[in-house]
């Protein structure tokens, strides 16, 4: 599928018509529906969102082949963080628990003690994802906010920058993705065919949605935010040696 790149003068309503999944992106950025025929540029301005950052998020979300180029646009950082934080909240408090409930329902009705393993498999997944996202919320994002403040000259170099750098971050996204893929396959190929076709179908649809949402989330972290923070670190490093 060769998709057109979404641009600042596109009408946001049309973007939704061509890919309704972007509704969650608007939600995460605090954009309210009812925006008539306004362009992306107009809407982002009204909502105090950086247009460039928003376009990168939208394009990554809509197109797996899109290669983002953020250069040294450090001013994108706050909106990337805003998006990532609010999608963490959505994953942990909405999507993942909703799937958990359905898996419980599915397993309960199968009346086969062996299938309980599926539930514990998913629960273990929740633990891992929660741990990973907590780490980002509590350590990685505050660090990025700190050095962004230094960049804005709102604060001077303090201890975090000397102790941490962004390359420490990350590693186990891939394992987490594997767990989700395995769960899908177990439901598609291996779980016995009994009743509960409907719940099973719903769980699978939810898992596919979660997977693709997480995929663009990870791309925003790995291909956009982290390279940008590395650039910022490089620019700020000379300041550290001066202090």
């Amino acid at each position: 599928m060769d998709l057109k790149i979404i641009a600042a003068n596109d009408i946001l309503a049309n973007v939704i018509h061509s890919n309704y999944r972007v509704l969650v992106v608007l939600d995460r950025m605090g954009i309210k529906l009812g925006f008539d025929n306004k362009t992306i540029e107009q809407i982002t301005r009204e909502n105090n969102i950086n247009t460039g950052a928003f376009l990168i998020i939208l394009n990554i979300f809509c197109n797996n082949n899109y290669i983002p180029d953020v250069g040294k646009n450090f001013e994108f950082i706050p909106d990337f963080l805003r998006y990532l934080k609010s999608s963490h909240h959505y994953f942990l408090n909405e999507k993942i628990p909703a799937i958990q409930q359905n898996i419980h329902k599915l397993v309960y009705h199968l009346h086969d003690s062996r299938t309980d393993l599926v539930e514990s498999f998913y629960n273990k997944y929740i633990e891992e994802v929660t741990e990973h996202m907590d780490y980002e919320n509590e350590t990685v994002f505050p660090y990025i906010e700190d050095i962004y403040d230094v960049f804005l000259k709102k604060s001077t170099i303090s201890s975090p920058m000397a102790e941490y750098d962004i390359s420490i971050y990350g590693e186990h996204h891939d394992d987490i993705e594997d767990v989700l893929k395995d769960l899908k396959n177990i439901l598609i190929r291996h779980l016995p065919q009994k009743e509960q076709g409907k719940t099973r179908r719903i769980v699978l649809q939810q898992l596919f949605e979660l997977e693709s949402d997480l995929y663009s989330h990870t791309r925003i972290e790995d291909e956009v935010l982290i390279p940008l923070v590395k650039e910022l670190e490089n620019d700020l490093r000379p300041l550290i040696s001066m202090t």
Binding site: F121, D178, K181, D182, N185, I186, R189
Partner: peptide, 9 residues
Amino acid sequence: KLDIKTVSG
């Protein structure tokens, strides 16, 4: 063959 990558899977 199974399309499963984790040991718990």
